[in-house]
Design a protein around this nucleic acid. Sequence first.
DNA 1: CATAGCCCTG
DNA 2: CAGGGCTATG
Length: 733
Amino acid sequence: MPDHDSAALLTRQTKRRRVDIGVKRTVGSVILARARDTLLDGMNQSHGVDQDGDCSLVAGGDGEKSNVLRKLLKRANSYEDAIMPFPGATIISQLLKSNMAKNGGSDSGFQGSGNLSSGGSEIQAEDGCSNSSRERDSPSDCLSPVGRPSSNHTPHAPPQPLPISSFDLDRLTDEHLRAKRARVENIIRGMSHSRWCGPAAAIPARTPAARNAGEAYRENKRDMQVGARRRRGRTRPAPARMLTPSSAASAPLQKQLRQLQEKFYQIYDSETEEEEENGEADRAREREEDGNLSEDSVRSDGLEEQHRDRQRNGHDDLAEMDPGLFLDRARALLREQALMDAEMEDMDGGEDEDRSAERAGKRRGGRHLAETKQELNCAVSQVVDTVVKGFSSPKPPFAPLPPLTPDSRFGSGVLALSLNGDGSPASAYHASNQRLHCFGDVIVPSPLDVFGGLSGVPTPSDQTEALPLVVRKSGGGENAGLSLSLPPPPPLLHHPSLHPPLAASLGLGPPAFRHPPQKSMMGYPIQGPLGGGDGYPAGPKDHHRSSPDSMDMTRETVSSGRAMASLGGGHLKSSPSQHGPDGLSLSHIKSECGDLQDMSDISPYSSNITQKGLVFFFLGCRKLMFFYTRYPSSNMLKMFFSDVKFNRCITSQLIKWFSNFREFYYIQMEKFARQAINEGVTSAEELAVGRDAELFRALNMHYNKANDFEHTPRRFPDEAQVAFHRFFNLVAA
DNA sequence: CATAGCCCTG
DNA sequence: CAGGGCTATG
């Protein structure tokens, strides 16, 4: 207790005072101001002012200033500015990689991990996605449709496993194809005079809040509004809305999309229905042939009903459907058809002659199918092209990104994607990893990637118009394509807006990312006030921000495999009892929000995953994230944890967590500051917060308990030191 | 009115 | 770490 006046002082008042010292951040900002004077050259004007104010504050120490101080402190707490969260990416990605390596046998396990995760989560997934979750079943399922629980869902499923065999398949296929073709033809024919569903449709789909269709529509408008509001949010200036696909590719494009959408659904609907009628056989084969498709299906399944319902309710709803999702599905359909083609060819391979007739029919059907496919492809391509143009024309594709704003992220993502598609380094990465992200309910790497900065982080809710591009991009790449565009689980879209700094510092990102955005990115106010808004000269921050080098986090490495466990592996364990040492539980998230049903929509996990796993996983992530940003905005969080569907509850919960983290952080600061003072330290200069410093250790212990980071972000100690000095000075004062 | 953040208590 | 109260902000 040497550090404190007395135990008595630790009472509420003290506590309060202590916290207030947190307020001292504000006060700290005083120091900061001074520091600015000394450490920083420019910006003296404002600083002088600040200083004065600060001084008075310090002297007076009144509550009034509290606010001012708070603000100042906040601004002062710029380390997160400098230490963009993105750098963490490196770490995490490294973490991921190392874990992959470590997983030894399961590097396959990695891929597998995808499956693993999905497998692990399957159990969980089941509750939420029942039938869909089974899509992942092993090929064996294909052989034994009966084995599938979901078969109940398909009355027509042949009782005998394999017996389905060629004949039945052929027949089914043929019929299927014919019917399909007919429908498609009809639809396409009707394309010419497709009518438009009027105004009602135009708006919602592009709402800023537009998120993955499935959810977007389910969310009540209020939420959407909220979302929009939030994005507009106080934290950011938000000029960049222009970049959003929605605005870029506005009306005309939308029209096209909707038309296409409509067509597609006409097909898709009958398609799915037919599928169901045809039993599991088809699905099984699909799955067998294309795991990704399966994933796709998994995800789609959940939405299917919604969409169908919507359709029943009229085209207005349909029109509202998220273009991205729509395209996504369109692709799925195409894929399916492709598969059918493949099947037929295979069948043609070698068989009896008495089948020649049928085969002929099949071929015919195949041709038709091909035609249909082509048509669809064309349509899709067209739309995609339009979208692309929409984005590229207004601004050069890689024009400097506006300061990152919630809204701008989408656009950025799009751009990023296109970049990716160009074969950027990142694209390669994605090619191999994206798949991992598409495992229906569990997306292990995603968060990691997020940190890694290699993958964009569109929130499910965010991901919207970007999809078209994805589609295009993915073109042939199955994995990339599918995983990218899968709606519910946040597809990994590149977020140039996020990556630039990282990319620049790591040299990982596409060159295109390295220049313009950087500045703006750096300027991105991770925490509202820090942005320099408020009319406050972002001097100090700029100082930090302008030193990208400092962001080189490549050094950060993850030492323990546990990181994986905590970051991604944790949730794999469906066992309630295993969620790491932390024993922390996210379950509250669910319970807190009373409406669990709603909650199930929140995240691919939440609904299914054991709350614990999720919990563990989450908390760990967040704590680590704290090393990079003390004031992550909700948008930031969303971006970073794209695998989570954010809703108000989740968001506020996370924010709350960070609030708690901060509290701890500041309390430690104060505590050690007092301690130092008691020990006779007179000058902050005498205090250095190295990695061996107690303060640092305490912090690390708290945020990095499991040593997920062998080396915390390089700048963290520095920034901690800055903050510490501020506290010290304040306390001393 | 909603969000976000801080403070405080449990 | 949760939750309630309070405040600032848009």
